[in-house]
């Protein structure tokens, strides 16, 4: 169970994790761009979503948008 960082087996294992995180981030960014009203400025949310892993997108989805019209 000794891996080097270029080992393909390693990427087979953590590749899906990275992909799912990327999907989550892109989804949050898309939702951010399309959102009519956000709580707080959009650029701050963009930084939070990109920088804070998993929790950033989740926080945006939970608290970032106002869904009423």
């Amino acid at each position: 169970m000794d891996f080097h960082w270029s080992d393909p087996k390693l990427w087979q294992i953590i590749g899906p994790v990275v992909v799912v995180q990327l999907i989550l981030m892109v989804a949050a960014l898309t939702a951010l761009i399309k959102a009519e009203h956000t709580r707080g400025p959009k650029w701050v949310w963009a930084i939070v979503i990109v920088v804070v892993n998993i929790i950033g997108p989740v926080a945006f989805f939970l608290f970032g948008r106002r869904m009423d019209g």
Binding site: V20, A27, V58, R65
Partner: peptide
């Protein structure tokens, strides 16, 4: 509201 996407994704992670 994207819940169908993000909630399952977070559970998967």
């Amino acid at each position: 509201s994207w819940k169908w996407l993000w909630v399952p994704l977070v559970f998967i992670l």
